[in-house]
């Protein structure tokens, strides 16, 4: 959905985005099956580091090189209540065992603010480009090589995307936004452009199921 929206709507900066390949992404904690070889291992697996952006899109110049990235988090919530959105953006409450203090940890703002220059997932995207059409995407591939491995590469410009999808809360008014949009939200400290997309649905689950069924039809 993020890809569809990105390609078809106009985003901040007016760039023309192409999402040549869609990456699917699963939740972090189910990847641990790979290592536990079990679905319900009791032991807590510490998973460090970012798992990767949910979504990456490219802007290409005439020669096909990558000049801008759009990188985003896409989240689904069954009910987009205020509290739910707050937790989503600011993180869950966690109690510090030593001094009993409660702080919020995690959340989309935190993730997006501290991201590294070249987001995770670019490598995979490049790989898929190579797979799909090595010659056709040659320029993009090389520019991604440079971004990924050179010590002081020319940094690629970037737009951050936050996409929230879900069923609207019961008392939602028409056109009511979940996040501030007239000014840059103060929680956002990253220097890159920010684009927020909110997709408010009704009976969203049915739509999702239908889409997945379509994909896995053999």
């Amino acid at each position: 959905m993020a890809g569809l929206v990105t390609e078809n709507y106009e985003f901040v900066g007016g760039h023309e985005w192409s999402v040549p390949i869609f990456l699917f992404r699963y939740h972090a904690d189910v990847e641990k099956y790979l290592f536990d070889l079990a679905r319900d291992a009791e032991r807590e697996r510490a998973v460090f580091g970012r798992l990767g952006s949910d979504f990456i899109g490219l802007k290409l110049d005439d020669r096909g090189a990558v000049v801008r990235l759009i990188v985003g988090e896409a989240k689904w919530r069954g009910e987009l209540s205020d509290a739910e959105v707050e937790t989503l953006m600011l993180g869950k409450w966690k109690t510090n065992k030593r001094n009993g203090q409660r702080t919020r940890r995690g959340g989309i703002w935190a993730e997006i603010n501290r991201d590294i220059d070249v987001p995770h997932g670019v490598r995979q995207l490049q790989r898929l480009l190579r797979e799909r059409d090595r010659d056709g995407h040659a320029a993009a591939i090389v520019s991604m090589d440079k971004a990924l491995v050179l010590r002081n590469p020319v940094p690629i410009a970037r737009t951050n995307l936050i996409m929230i999808v879900g069923n609207g809360k019961a008392k939602r008014g028409e056109g009511e936004a979940l996040l501030t949009w007239e000014t840059i939200p103060e929680e956002y400290t990253s220097p890159h452009d920010l684009q927020v997309v909110e997709v408010i649905l009704k009976d969203g689950e049915d739509l999702i199921d239908e889409i997945y069924d379509l994909l896995w039809k053999v």
Partner: peptide, 13 residues
């Protein structure tokens, strides 16, 4: 190919 599309950076690597 599937892993590249679906898993995180390190797992797919």
């Amino acid at each position: 190919q599937m892993a590249t599309r679906t898993f995180s950076e390190d797992s797919s690597l």
